[in-house]
């Protein structure tokens, strides 16, 4: 896959909710393109339609009008089961509230998407290996057998990221991934996402924190269901990451007496 492959292409995306007599236009014709390897922040006030957009981009919802091509494949009119399959194979989700299953260990949570694979199913042993590798890549290998409640918020979010990575998705959708975390954990999570992005994973992240958005290379703003602005920070990934490291280092110094 070259740098120029379009991962996301939406054409005049509209979403209309019928509420009795009143029709609410949540999305009013959004056309965006996101290329492979991009790290994009989506911002916008509440009610702007950014959640609706993310739901459609995540194949959790279907547009009322317009088309959505995910890696060139039109998913606008797929059935619920087909969309489930697409989510399983191509998309990794990271949520604000982590959404780990409380009675499963970190490792089991990471393995969860593999249960729902339709083809090329792995053996239990292979799944375990893959989940262990995913946990390793987020730096939590030694916590594999802990329950979520035994982990800190930042660690739980890492488990969730490992889960998002398990099926080698072409796209990671993160919905305010740092919204429930303290500054330090937030920066660590951002660093982790940057690392993934460097390895070629395309990331689209919703946030309302400008400083978190500043760590990305491109910021898309949504307002009233329309594209408000779409600008590149100019900064390259390297620079964004360097800034991130500085912030983290500053934090560490503060913490020391």
């Amino acid at each position: 896959m070259t740098e120029q492959t379009k991962i996301i292409e939406t054409i005049e995306l509209k979403k209309i909710y019928g509420m009795g007599d009143v029709e609410v236009m949540a999305l009013n014709g959004i056309s965006i393109q996101i290329l492979a390897g991009e790290f994009v922040a989506v911002m916008g006030p509440s009610g702007s339609g950014k959640s609706t957009l993310m739901n459609i981009l995540g194949c959790l919802d279907r547009p009322s009008e317009g088309r959505y091509l995910l890696a060139g494949e039109d998913v606008s009119n797929m059935s619920r089961a087909e969309l489930a399959h697409i989510r399983n194979q191509r998309i990794g989700f990271v949520f604000q509230s982590f959404n780990l299953l409380p009675k499963m260990t970190a490792l089991e949570n990471v393995m969860l998407p593999l249960i729902y694979q339709r083809e090329n199913r792995l053996s239990v042993h292979e799944r375990r290996q893959r989940a262990e590798a995913a946990l390793e890549s987020v730096g939590l290998a030694e916590r594999a057998h802990h329950l979520p409640k035994e982990l800190s918020g930042g660690q739980q979010q890492r488990v969730a990221i490992a889960r998002a990575l398990i099926n080698d998705p072409i796209l990671i959708l993160a919905d305010e991934p740092t919204g429930n975390l303290d500054t330090r954990s937030s920066l660590e999570i951002m660093e982790l996402l940057h690392g993934l992005n460097e390895r070629g994973v395309t990331i689209v992240m919703v946030t309302h924190e400008a400083d978190i958005a500043a760590h990305t290379r491109r910021v898309i703003r949504i307002r009233d269901g329309r594209l408000d602005s779409d600008h590149h920070n100019g900064g390259r990934s390297e620079e964004a990451k360097a800034a991130l490291r500085q912030s983290l280092a500053a934090l560490s110094e503060e913490a020391q007496p």
Binding site: H85, R87, N88, N99, L112, Y116
Partner: peptide, 16 residues
């Protein structure tokens, strides 16, 4: 409900 939502998000079909 949340667990069901999550399972759906990570690829569980309505049939699953």
């Amino acid at each position: 409900t949340r667990e069901i939502g999550l399972r759906q998000a990570v690829g569980a079909t309505p049939g699953d």
